[in-house]
Design a protein around this nucleic acid. Structure first.
Length: 213
DNA sequence: AAAACGGGGGC
DNA sequence: GCCCCAGTTTT
């Protein structure tokens, strides 16, 4: 059983070897924010399609703020949860115009005040728009961190706190994206591909499975 | 703590 | 056809 710091280094190096860090071609904070809200509980392809259609028709914050609700719903439909999401992006746009002078805030405290923005979304904006170190914890990061024995946590918020204590800051910006790719590809929620996994030998979850046989 | 929100893809 | 999924808010 290797120590945590070595374990982290091993994990991050393997993930770096397996995947490339994907960055939004459009780092505009407003667009990152809206795209991230649309991405909640939603796969990339569907998010991308919805985001594209939305900004094609309503390119700016003001356009979205003034757009009719039913038009927005139609445009973002493919992202799922489309009624609540369309309402939130419209409301967020309004609030940013009215209370923030059209500027997306770059602090956790202010971001959390916006409707539809929780810790995961706020951290995504901090990382992907402002390039500030933060660790967005979604279900992939939550699951993988627990399986690999980095944390022992039932809730994503607790996972985030624990990760922030043990992960060197140099890894923060890439951790979420690399783990998401790993989680879709190999360390899947159901039916993880242990045979293909380069981390199986240091994985608590896999070792438990071996021991049960 | 649990429910509600949802279209799209895997099988 | 059935089941699951890159969260957040409301009950």
């Amino acid at each position: 059983m290797i120590k945590i710091p070595e374990r982290i280094e091993r994990i991050m190096e393997e993930l770096r070897g397996l995947y490339k860090l994907r960055v939004f071609e459009d780092k505009d904070p407003y667009r990152v924010l809206i795209r991230t809200i649309l991405s909640q509980r939603t796969r990339d392809e569907n998010t991308d399609q919805a985001t594209l259609k939305l900004f094609n028709k309503y390119p700016d914050m003001e356009d979205v703020a003034l757009a009719p609700q039913d038009k927005l719903e139609k445009l973002v439909k493919s992202a799922g949860f489309y009624r609540v999401k369309s309402k939130r992006i419209k409301e967020v746009s309004h609030i940013l115009m009215d209370d923030y002078n059209g500027v997306v805030p770059d602090t956790m405290e202010e971001l959390l005040k916006l409707p539809g923005v929780g810790r995961k979304t706020a951290n995504c904006v901090l990382v992907y728009a402002f390039e500030k170190p933060a660790i967005p914890v979604d279900t992939h990061v939550h699951r993988i961190s627990n399986r690999l024995g980095l944390v022992n946590s039932k809730e994503p918020d607790k996972t985030e706190l624990e990760l922030e204590k043990i992960i060197p800051k140099t890894y923060w910006i890439e951790l979420n994206d690399l783990m998401v790719q790993f989680g879709q590809d190999i360390c899947r929620p159901i039916g993880p591909k242990h045979e293909e996994c380069p981390l199986a030998e240091i994985c608590d979850y896999y070792q438990d499975i071996l021991n049960q046989k």
